[in-house]
């Protein structure tokens, strides 16, 4: 109840709205918060997951996005095949949410699909896939992430560098060094961080 109370209070004190009929229909967002309890995977959850996986094929993109977000909350490996299919959804918002959910679940079987998503037409999807691959930490994604350093979007390159740093594979050193000459300052900064990480973490 507390965040809602805070919301209501803030809304009211803003006094911007009179006759405040506030119907709060809340939709999930891409970067859904950390889960409060880690007890998600058991009991009635299986039916819930199966139902949500079916909803990943709903005719309405908003429903598909919501279902993907919910599956991210539930964090069950059972949802991985359905979410992998959703990384090829026609709507970028759904692909983005599916990839974020796969990141929450953190299952390595998603790595090939996530690697494929590094070539997505939508820059946000590419960047998010890079972040998730970094989190999973599977070395098979390294080459594809190095390839992403030639992306046209600076933010995508920056995320690829941070993912490479997280995976910590020495193959990335040459590419990260080249990124020190990137025209974008944020990319250069990420390259410095990545190099520090890659050289410090060598065994």
């Amino acid at each position: 109840m507390s965040p809602l109370t805070v919301f209501v209070r803030t809304l009211l004190k803003s006094s911007a709205i009179c006759l405040g009929i506030a119907i709060a229909v809340i939709h999930p967002s891409v970067e859904s918060g950390r889960s409060r309890r880690a007890t998600a995977q058991q009991s009635p959850a299986q039916a819930a997951i199966d139902g949500l996986v079916i909803a990943l094929e709903d005719s309405d993109a908003g429903v598909r996005r919501s279902a993907a977000a919910a599956l991210g909350e539930l964090r069950s490996p059972r949802a991985v095949p359905g979410l992998i299919a959703a990384t090829r959804d026609e709507q970028p918002g759904v692909r983005l949410q599916a990839i974020a959910a796969l990141g929450e679940i953190g299952d390595a079987t998603a790595v090939p699909a996530l690697t494929a998503a590094l070539k997505d037409a939508d820059a946000r999807v590419r960047g998010r896939a890079a972040v998730v691959l970094g989190g999973i930490g599977d070395k098979s994604a390294v080459d594809a992430l190095i390839g992403l350093l030639a992306d046209k979007e600076a933010e995508v390159k920056r995320r690829a560098l941070l993912a490479l740093a997280e995976i910590g594979d020495g193959r990335a050193v040459t590419a990260a060094t080249a990124a020190l000459k990137d025209p974008d300052a944020d990319v250069r900064r990420a390259a410095v961080l990545a190099l520090a990480e890659l050289s410090g973490g060598e065994q």
């Binding site: 939709h27 999930p28 409060r36 139902g51 908003g62 429903v63 977000a69």
Partner: peptide
Amino acid sequence: AGVRRQAAWAIGVIGR
């Protein structure tokens, strides 16, 4: 569709 969206969201919230 709005009901389906909201239901999906709620299932996720309850299960987390």
